[in-house]
Each structure stands twice: as C-alpha cells, then as structure tokens.
Amino acid sequence: MNFLLLKISTFFLSIFLLVWIFSLVRRRLLIEEYSFLWICIVGVFLVLSFFHPIMDKVAYWLGIDYGPSALFLFFNVVTLFILIHVSIQLSDYKSKKRLLAQEIALLRDKVEELSRKMRSHESANL
C-alpha cells in the first residue's frame, strides 16, 4: 500500500483549509494571530501525511505500531491545547465583559443622576 488515496485526499483537504483560512483573514473574520496557528497546523498535516517515513519514525519512538495512529494522537493533542487556549481567551473576554457591563451600569446611573440635577437646576433658574 502506498496510501495514494490518503495522500490525495489529505492534499485536497489541506488546500481547502488553506484557501478557507486565507479567505477568512481577507474578510477580517479571523485575525492574523490565529491564521498563523492554523496555517502551521495545516503545514504539519501536509508534511506528515506526505512523508510517511517521518510519521513512522515518530510513531516508532512513541511505541505506536501503526503510523497514522501517531498522526491522530498528534492532532488530538494539538486540538486539546488549542481548546484550552481558547478557553483561557474566553475567560479573559468574559471577565472584561463583566467589568465593562458593570462600568456601563454605574456610568448610566451617574448620567441619569446628573441630567436630573441639571433639569432641576434649569427649572429653578427659569
């Protein structure tokens, strides 16, 4: 087996992913910080699926009998790290969102208070 079908399909999948990522960046739906990460991952994906000896060697070092299993393991670990990273960012955004919402609520109260004072001041002057 020379994994021809696998190579062709991973090639097209990678091309699809690259085009998608570039179009997302172009439309500013994905900031370039993340596009870099995804492009690297696609690159690794391409290299590993086209150069089987690398994958087989890595699998051998890890004590994994079947090469493609190492690929799965690799992507699972990468996905896990990305998910944790996204959770951290989400937590950061949530706490910033909370601060902003509280600030808005307190400021709105202050604005209402001030405009009430201004109105009563104006009506007292009239």
Binding site: R98, A101, Q102, I104, A105, L106, R108, D109
Partner: peptide, 25 residues
C-alpha cells in the same frame, strides 16, 4: 428606590459586586 440596571444577566456574583463598587464610590 435607587436601581442600577445591568445591561444583561450576569449572575449574583457580578450583581453584588456592582453594589460593592457603588458603595465604595
């Protein structure tokens, strides 16, 4: 009564903390 409206539901922790911020200020 004085009312402060949070722009969306944030849970008791954030609500009470808004009260503490008001009290501090």
């Amino acid at each position: 009564v004085k009312v402060i409206d949070l722009p969306f539901n944030m849970g008791i922790g954030a609500a009470v903390q808004t009260g503490f911020k008001y009290a501090r200020e």
